[in-house]
Design a binder for these strands. Structure first.
Length: 284
DNA sequence: CGATTTCCCTGGCCGC
DNA sequence: TGCGGCCAGGGAAATC
């Protein structure tokens, strides 16, 4: 379940290995989700960027060079996607579900393995994300100035949905997945089912800070998955996610699990109370 | 048109 | 030990 911190970690690993390389050959699993990988053949990788959970690799070939605009190789890891550069064209043994491979001009190969096939690959004209609606409507990066209290309040204001559902939509802020949504809401002491438009100013401010904090910590640790594999607990993180029945690190109460938007949702009912919205326009 | 539900996938886990 | 059944979950499509 790569979320923003995991994707950023992967981006940092790939960048020095891919920038400047030309893709000399490619192959892909027979599926519309992965076949676009072939379209990158013959192109040079100019950069390795990230937006939310999407990896964006600007690429260019002779044709696009003369035409002026480049393309982007876009990779989403879905639930189980893994992306790495191998020293040769031989895939290591652990790669049991290869969905795409790009052979590079230095003899190495970029592999994409994805057990559940929730991942996706696209090659599109640079900036043309119309065919990827979530990317097209992606909210600001959590560490960008554009992700500020005013923006979050405005984004949250227009919806009656549960705040967690809003966070997972990627439109309010980019890159928050199930784990970090739970952790940010816990830190901000906001109930995951609180209607988005009923959050007070203070709660919105806490939530904004908590989202940035959680994702930043995730990056610092190299991704929640890696944290999960380490001796537990590490800095009480994750504090609630995956800890049903354990005692809350804040109050000692019991962590509960519910389902929101078909996602397992962990929270502390006493630290994160559902609050009645203040009526904004008093009805006489 | 916004919100909700369904679907895509397969390894892992549970119970018998 | 083997096996059926069910769950997880990001994002897009279908449906409400």
């Amino acid at each position: 379940m790569p979320e923003l911190p995991e994707v950023e970690t992967i981006r940092r690993q790939l960048e020095p290995q891919l920038v400047g390389r030309t893709i000399v050959d490619a192959s892909a699993f027979e599926s519309d989700k992965f076949l676009p990988a072939l379209l990158a053949t013959g192109s040079r990788i100019d950069d390795v960027r990230r937006r939310g959970k999407y990896l964006l690799l600007p690429i260019r070939d002779e044709r696009s060079e003369s035409a002026g605009g480049g393309s982007e190789l876009i990779v989403h890891l879905g639930m189980t996607g893994r992306l790495w550069v191998g020293p040769t064209t031989d895939a290591p043994e652990g790669a049991g579900h290869l969905r795409a491979r790009w052979d590079l001009d230095d003899g190495r190969t970029l592999f994409f393995d994805d057990v559940r096939r929730f991942g996706r690959i696209a090659v599109l004209p640079a900036g043309d994300h119309a065919s990827l609606p979530t990317l097209d409507a992606l909210g600001p990066e959590p560490f960008d100035e554009a992700f500020n209290p005013e923006q979050l309040r405005a984004a949250v204001n227009g919806s009656t949905r549960a705040i967690k559902t809003q966070l997972l939509s990627q439109r309010v802020v980019a890159g928050v997945g199930n784990i970090y949504a739970d952790e940010a809401l816990f830190r901000a002491r906001v109930h995951p089912q609180q209607p988005a438009n009923s959050l007070g100013k203070a709660a919105v401010d806490r939530l904004r800070e908590a989202i940035a904090w959680a994702l930043d910590m995730g990056i610092a640790q190299g991704g929640a998955k890696i944290i999960h594999q380490r001796a537990y607990p590490v800095d009480d993180f994750p504090a609630v996610h995956g800890r049903e029945g354990e005692s809350c690190v804040g109050c000692g109460g019991s962590v509960k699990k519910i389902t929101i938007a078909a996602r397992g949702t962990y929270f502390c009912p006493s630290c994160q109370r559902l609050r009645q919205p203040k009526p904004k326009t008093p009805t006489v």
